[in-house]
Design a protein around this nucleic acid. Structure first.
Lengths: 206, 206, 206, 206
DNA sequence: TATGAATGAGGCTTCATTCAT
DNA sequence: AATGAATGAAGCCTCATTCAT
């Protein structure tokens, strides 16, 4: 080996933990979402975020730790979904559009689809996160219910099916969510699913 | 070792392949459904159906083969779900009840829930079976659509949202399906989910 | 299942042990010779002689037992190779032809080639059979030597290289043996290997 | 467990792949040569070169890959056997000695014997390497032939058996090769086998 | 922080052998 | 004597984790 020998075994990029962490979690989301917890390999997660296998362990102590951190981050992101402004005095269509927009943002966010793919196979390993997910949906549902109630009361239609079973207002979006989880992120039972959902709500609120 | 020592190395129960196969698939459904493909162990499947690990291989050549056979059997079972009789001249509530009964039987069968739990994490490994699942739902959807169309035409309401977006008729049951896949088989967003679904359809058909 | 049900699961041919044994050993020779002791499977040996795996065990207690019996039979067969008649007063070419014929029959018999293929990889497991093989070759060598000696003495050429190193008279046939063991049973370094061998011996005896 | 308990889990020696590879192949040669491909255990190869079972897989993807790499290396080594210098004008004995020295070096190298032990039982799994071996011998044979031809032409003995069947010049060494493969590396049909081979060639060239 | 060879537990698979039929 | 489902030990291979560098 002479002085000028320069095999550059691979560019060694050094990042602060704060910068590396999100990259790792992004990579982990992709791998876990694709192959499940058991099927995902530390090697692949590492590779996908530009690290070597061992490098991961400078940031997380175990595969499980990454998984938990990933669930936390993803749940948090979804839960923080911004609520569009809504006037209680809006007409039915405006209300329906607000509901659909809100659900769309929370339930069909790419993260939300990926999260569902993680939670279903691992529900027994992470029951607490599953409960958090349920709680999150519950909160969205309650807000939707509140808006619907106001609107129905204003129209004197408290007996409407939506008033008695508010979860039905979410069903079309949940339907699309499942389609995306199973068939891929562009999928839906209908290309105009947002319009269909709005129309359904309008017809029920009318 | 005393005289009475009786290690009973395990009673060797011998079954014909036709008899053993369904036991294996039942065991596999349970294990795969619980832990996913990678997480399930051949040992556990074997144990659960009264075989030794190696014994499995007299019936299936590999873990993957069991998985595929399981998907086949389950898809077939669900697809064969009997269609209840329906009179096209029935009133709205009867039609709604027929639809809900039919979907309930096909979509919420325990097998169907378990199948969904398998397909979501393994969708990339078995894209063909995923397509079969989609086709199966499609067939159910079309039959529901036909019944709804007849009914709406009779009432002169071809412009109803259900006529334009028939998939919406399935959404509540899909919603429940996802709840059961994620939260367990007793779960639903509402204990009276069947009644809610019927009411919704009635209101839309009215 | 009605009375006429006749699934004929497979023709069950029952043979006396004396009739079955050679079939088993033939099958075993083929399989061991092709895949080595460890590589050969009881299943394949069974199949090749029209038995099921379990059926083999009615005749031999273990794989090793088959192997040993096979070596015994094959060594015995080769050792019994008939010696062609030879007149000590024959001319050189006749002597050379007798030697080549004799060696050809013993050393290049299909069994002998197959046996070599077994002994080389298993020499450490069956050192006794290896010694028997060496002894067998030794006996052939000595008989060849005796004939050569007589002939050389008659010609007053006791100092010939063949007299001092009689094993050289076997080398061409051993060469061919190795070629057949390695390259297949039709192989040889020269299509006219018998003629070449005879010519060599003639030249050395002249 | 006393205080002084020192389980030393095994010193972890770290080597660069370039340094580890030859150690692995040496170990593999020993194990494969002794027990054949199927009989050799990855554990033993690992142990023999100071690795754990899993450690092997950092360098080779499978047992088969090790086997192939081993054949490659060994064939290469043997093929590179240096050719001793030879004068075409040398006398017969010098030519004979050159031939024997050359063949001895190539054909009886310890690696060559071990290689033969691998190739014979695995000839069907690695037909390409078997052909390479044949080619290698062929090349040696042709060089020997060239030297012999020159020499015979100079003496006006183009009709000699060696001229017509040059492979006979190799036979004694092949004979010894087989003896070593079967009976162990010190073995030979004659302790003075080199002298015998030289004498044979001299007598044929005379 | 980062690398990647190395470990070792654990899973999948094979197969000699057993045994109820 | 024969079958073939079943066992269980053993081997190959994977991969989460460790650690010298």
């Amino acid at each position: 080996m002479n002085d000028n020998d320069s095999h550059q075994p691979k560019r060694r990029v050094r990042l602060a933990p704060e910068a590396r962490m999100p990259l790792i979690l992004d990579a982990a989301l992709e791998e876990f979402s694709r192959r499940g917890f058991s099927g995902a390999r530390m090697d692949d997660i590492a590779l996908r975020c530009g690290l070597s296998k061992g490098g991961l362990y400078a940031h997380f102590g175990s595969k499980d730790e990454i998984f938990k951190a990933l669930l936390d981050r993803t749940l948090q992101r979804i839960d923080w979904a911004q609520m569009p402004q809504s006037g209680a005095d809006a007409d039915n269509r405006a209300v329906a559009e607000w509901i659909v927009a809100r659900l769309h943002e929370a339930v069909l966010a790419p993260d939300a689809v990926a999260l569902l793919r993680l939670l279903i196979p691992e529900r027994e390993r992470v029951p607490l996160r599953v409960e958090e997910w349920r709680g999150m949906i519950q909160r969205h549902s309650e807000q939707v219910h509140a808006v619907i109630s106001d609107n129905l009361k204003a129209g004197g239609r408290q007996n409407c099916v939506l008033a008695r079973h508010p979860w039905l207002a979410l069903s079309p979006m949940i339907h699309v969510l499942l389609w995306q989880a199973l068939f891929g992120e562009g999928s839906a039972p209908d290309v105009h699913y947002r319009q269909a959902h709005v129309d359904l709500l309008c017809e029920l609120l009318a």
